[in-house]
Amino acid sequence: MKGYNFAYLDEQTKRMIRRSLLKAVAIPGHQVPFGSREIPLPYGWGTGGIQVTASILGAGDVLKVIDQGADDTTNAVSIRRFFARTAGIATTTATADATVIQTRHRIPETPLREDQIIVYQVPQPEPLFRLESSRVETKRMHGLADYGSMHVKLYEDIARFGQISISYDYPVMVNDRYLMSPSPIPAFDNPKMDMMPALQLFGAGREKRIYAIPPWTRVTSLDFQDHPFRTINAPYPCGLCGATDSYLDEVVTDDTGGRLYVCSDTDYCSRRRGAAE
């Protein structure tokens, strides 16, 4: 685009972000502070993911952008257009065809490969923020792997509700060392992070943090031996493609309690329907 560098950010900024990414990959799950820039999209709408994507994109990359699992939600459309406009790269909605996938709130149902990178948009990188508001203090807690308060919180949930009440942004331990926010993906998606062949990068623009999970890294959702981690999903097959293994959105069809459950991953759902026809 005239007047702007390839993928918007200038090369110095990209280098700075790549250095942060390398550090993040070297210390899986550790939050690396970085000099986050303003992006022409608002904070909270994916500015961290956009900066990470801008820094790793090459001219030959094929980009997929999803929000809530869907390629056609307005914010996904807006971000995909941003890169098509500023980087002139090819875009796709097919998970298998993408080399870089930027996502908000979901991991695609189609398993990712070693030659793919998934970039998560992260609103709040600090997994402890509801328990401790001071970042000075949480930094110390990460340094000492002092995660007792999170276990106490999970224990209190079980004591009060009979189960852990976190249904999304469910905290994970990365490589048995760092407690990490998986971003607000449903707990349903957590197991996909474990030993994923693809590189997983996380960008939090407003909070100015980057973190990463290298390929084939152990990622475990916090739990107790007698209360093992459980995923949550609507107990129905997809109303469009019949899938029983995908995460479902609930669509309100009338005002008398009518509901339709459909795959949140639009690419997965349409591919299954295409195959069935």
Binding site: Y43, N75, H105, Q163, Y168, P184
Partner: peptide
């Protein structure tokens, strides 16, 4: 205020997925 307005207003972006898991969770409980 640029950070604040972005994050406050991002609540209007879709949160179907998170709300869905909360719905299932609350129904189950």
């Amino acid at each position: 205020n640029i950070e604040a307005t972005g994050f406050v207003e991002h609540l209007k972006l879709p949160h179907y997925v998170d709300f869905q898991s909360e719905l299932q969770n609350v129904r189950k409980m």
